[in-house]
């Protein structure tokens, strides 16, 4: 599903943020991505959700070589990937419901076809009563849950999450972990970047540790 071979990344003429990163992820795998702040976790995730392209090395996603991928082929691959952004990236002018439904809407689905799915998911993450609220009135934890709901609503094959439990209390963090494990059990491949050692311990899944741009499997 994911294969990186000696991937390097740098911004402009700056130093390399990622150096010779090599690993592969098979369908159904569940990995945590850990490392100190500034180690390059977010940059690595940006490569994987195709917001950036590697400056060297090979990156294959769903069997496609990202280096030679045309712009027109990106949407089809991105629709197979769900992303939970660290800064949520909810649209402030859309309701929580519309934010969560966004991936289905851009895929061309009619609102009547996804209404129940979205409301069920909002109910599951405890936001059903906030479905009409705009993101600016949501708390940090609520925004986090809305962002997670948006990432999983289209049942992606690969879920990438950047600090998905960073703004929630331990109880909700545990519930979210159960959601991730359940999605993984149903076939979604997971890669979760986190600082939360408790979360990693509870899940008992392999860890990719990134330090000073280099990656090790722990």
């Amino acid at each position: 599903m994911l294969r990186l071979e000696n991937v390097g990344l740098k911004y402009g003429d700056g130093p390399e943020i990622l150096r010779d990163v090599s690993f592969s992820v098979r369908p159904g795998d569940f990995y945590f991505l850990t490392g100190p702040s500034g180690a390059g976790k977010s940059s690595l995730l940006k490569l994987l959700f195709l917001a950036l392209r590697p400056t060297r090395g090979k990156l294959h996603i769903f069997g496609e070589d990202v280096g030679g991928l045309s712009h027109s082929k990106l949407p089809a691959i991105r629709r197979r990937i769900g992303v939970v952004f660290q800064e949520f990236r909810l649209l402030d002018h859309l309701s929580t419901y519309d934010n969560v439904a966004l991936p289905l809407r851009v895929a061309g689905r009619a609102e009547s076809s996804y209404r129940l799915d979205v409301m069920d998911l909002l109910d599951w993450v405890g936001l059903a009563h906030k479905s009409s609220d705009l993101p600016p009135v949501l708390s940090g934890g609520e925004k986090q849950r809305a962002a997670i709901a948006r990432a999983v609503i289209a049942k992606p094959q690969l879920l990438l999450a950047d600090e998905p439990t960073g703004n929630v209390d331990p109880l909700l963090a545990k519930r979210l972990l159960h959601l991730f494990l359940e999605l993984n059990r149903l076939g979604t491949t997971m890669l979760i970047a986190t600082h939360d050692k408790g979360l990693v311990r509870q899940a008992e899944r392999p860890v990719l540790h990134l330090e000073q741009g280099a990656l090790n499997l722990q």
Partner: peptide
């Protein structure tokens, strides 16, 4: 731009 970037990342085509 922030909306356009997000739409791209959730799989929107340019025409959409």
């Amino acid at each position: 731009r922030h909306i356009v970037d997000l739409l791209h990342l959730v799989g929107a085509r340019d025409s959409y």
